[in-house]
Nucleic acid binder design. Structure first.
Lengths: 178, 178
DNA sequence: AAGCATTATATCGTACTGATAGTATTTTCT
DNA sequence: AGAAAATACTATCAGTACGATATAATGCTT
């Protein structure tokens, strides 16, 4: 899904500024399964406005920088529906951590153990932050999606906790790492 | 992790051509947590060669297109080790499917049910293909990584199977979708 | 024999990331 | 109180990567 459609979808849930869209993909319910940078959000919103899929209202704020609030137009809503009619592509998982594990066989088992333990902590934190999000989530779909995220994080955590020791043992057994 | 480092890492596990690297990230042990296109692999290998991180040998094959086999140099191995010393960034999950669920609240429950069922099938297939990979995997790390992938796929499958019905029910209850 | 998959290299337009810049306020630390 | 850091906002740009496509020979299937 391109950033264009992502913006359309987020605006379908409510008006927002570019900054708020960025916050949602970085920290909100979207944070688990999407990302987008300012460098793609702002140009997308500009183009979407030019093409009539969204409208933009300018707010001069007193004690804050000016704000541009974008709203979906009927044309935009139609375009989104059209986009959602096509089958979603497969999920994509990127993990520098797993890549490092594969590549780092020649690296000290201590370092690997350390890496795994850090990762376990990160999963615990992520679970906590998703559980917090759950309280704010209103729609059934957002509940479903956040709980999906929690389930995934728990599965990763569980796997790491239960297979950590055996990995280290096997790596030590497999090769004398210089 | 950029494609440059990915190439370095894969070449650390054995010599390969650009085509083979692409195959590994698309179908091999790497397929679960990384991706790279020809448009990034070939230029990376060219630059890596120019900079002395890899060497390239040309093979004229009889019944196949010519092949360029790349090998890691000592300098390349050092650069990889250096790269792996830094902490890996957080995992990134992208899911058009979950995005579609969130955005598609106004879409018919039938369509959502359909989407979820398709996804369940895809997870089942993915699990089977990962289990096949497991037979070929040699190193302890690749076993660990593939089993990690299987655990994740199973968790997703499990979640969808167990929460599917309740999602549909809630969506029907929540709003009369026109 | 036609048509598609596989093996292989390579490029190109477009999209996206990550970093950076600018400006103003509130919060936190010492 | 004053400094430092975080928050709130917009925006651009160089570099990087994606996805599609070109090319070309061979093998497999119907």
């Amino acid at each position: 899904m391109d950033v264009r459609t992502l913006c359309l979808g987020i605006l379908a849930l409510g008006d927002a500024s570019g900054y708020e869209i960025k916050k949602m993909v970085a920290e909100g319910s979207f944070s688990f399964f999407s990302e987008a940078s300012y460098g793609s959000i702002y140009p997308s919103l500009t183009r979407l406005t030019e093409e009539g899929f969204v409208t933009c209202e300018f707010f001069s704020q007193d004690k804050r920088p000016d704000k541009k609030i974008y709203s979906l137009t009927e044309k935009g809503r139609l375009a989104l529906t059209e986009e959602l009619r096509r089958d979603p592509g497969p999920d994509k998982n990127r993990s520098e951590f797993l890549a490092a594990l594969l590549f780092a066989e020649a690296v000290s088992p201590d370092r690997i153990q350390n890496l795994v333990e850090e990762r376990i902590d990160e999963h615990r934190m992520k679970i906590r932050s998703l559980q917090k999000l759950l309280d704010e989530a209103m729609s059934p779909a957002s509940h479903f999606v956040i709980n999906y995220g929690i389930a995934m994080q728990k599965a990763a955590l569980d796997y790491l906790e239960h297979h950590q020791a055996s990995l280290i043992k096997k790596i030590i057994a497999a090769g004398p790492t210089e």
